[in-house]
């Protein structure tokens, strides 16, 4: 039982980690980023490349990959997405445009990865050593990813609720029009939130590459997982993201242990659909209409 709970928490932490960047991109910058998973895999590849080619410890690699993720995302938002934001008259229009544009972006990032690394599976071993916690054996690399997910989630949550920049980000998330009225530069704030999301997804990619097998085509799996966590937790809400991720992870490992591993994903989706039926805006979301 304790083992199932521990495993579930760690898996849930990973889900939350995967989803945090998207909740900022979708919730604040209003970009439904379908190429999200591709960026995650790209970060995993760069970590692989740094580790196998340059013997650089992935945790140190974070110091390179995270700023790169931030920079690339900022550039992307400035160059590719700002015209769409300017052109969109309604939120719905921007959503449609961003779905279409990021769908194209997904192909581009995937195409680049395919030409650089080919289609094969990649995996490496780093910190895959057992640690004993309360008498249960856990993998150190997963434990680190879990710890960082919780730490980053709480830190960002505090930053969003306690700082001035955080408050303006939340204001944009709630109502971009009204935010303008109180002298918030909506475009700049959105760009910052999008880039922050990019930095988070880069971090997630590096961390999960320590224990998951990935290939150039596996991005879409992560996009989907992230979308489900984001919507279930409430779009734009980091705490919701953490709670939803943990709930999904826990349900998965409890079902695998006590019911049938074959039903884990079915239960995951059922839980997600159930939450939406009871609370259409997600666990921590505000009703939108």
């Amino acid at each position: 039982m304790t083992n199932a709970i521990f495993t579930g928490l760690m898996l849930g932490g990973m889900y939350a980690l995967i989803a945090m960047g998207l909740t900022l991109q979708y919730g604040v910058a209003r970009i439904m980023n379908l190429s999200y998973g591709e960026f995650l895999v790209a970060a995993a590849f760069s970590s692989y490349w740094l580790f196998t080619g340059w013997a650089l410890n992935p945790l140190l690699g974070l110091a390179l990959v995270i700023p790169a993720g931030f920079g690339v995302s900022l550039l992307l938002y400035r160059v590719l997405l700002t015209p769409l934001v300017r052109r969109a008259r309604t939120r719905g229009a921007l959503e449609v445009d961003s779905i279409l544009a990021t769908f194209g972006m997904m192909f581009i990032v995937q195409g680049i990865m395919l030409s650089m690394f080919g289609g094969a599976y990649f995996s490496y071993s780093f910190l895959a050593i057992p640690v004993s916690l309360f008498g249960e054996i856990l993998a150190l690399n997963r434990l680190i990813a879990f710890g960082l997910a919780v730490a980053v989630g709480l830190a960002l949550y505090l930053a969003l609720t306690r700082t001035r920049l955080g408050t303006s980000i939340r204001a944009v998330a709630v109502d971009p029009m009204a935010a303008q009225l109180v002298a918030i530069d909506v475009v700049r704030t959105s760009a910052f939130a999008f880039a922050l999301g990019g930095a988070l997804v880069a971090a997630a990619g590096v961390l999960i590459s320590m224990f998951l097998t990935f290939s150039a085509s596996s991005g879409v799996i992560f996009t989907m997982k992230a979308l489900i966590v984001v919507v279930m937790g409430g779009v734009g809400n980091l705490l919701g993201c953490l709670v939803a991720g943990l709930a999904l992870g826990l349900s998965e490992s409890l079902v695998a242990t006590f019911v049938d591993p074959g039903l884990t994903l079915a239960v995951n989706f059922a839980l997600f659909l159930g939450v939406l039926l009871v609370k259409p805006a997600g666990l921590f979301g505000r009703a939108q209409r």
């Binding site: 495993t7 898996l11 884990t264 994903l265």
Partner: peptide, 17 residues
């Protein structure tokens, strides 16, 4: 004697059991 879905990302519950 159990099955697990394609794309399961953490197989440790199975291994532990």
């Amino acid at each position: 004697d159990k099955t697990y879905p394609v794309g399961t990302q953490d197989l440790s519950p199975i291994v532990n059991e």
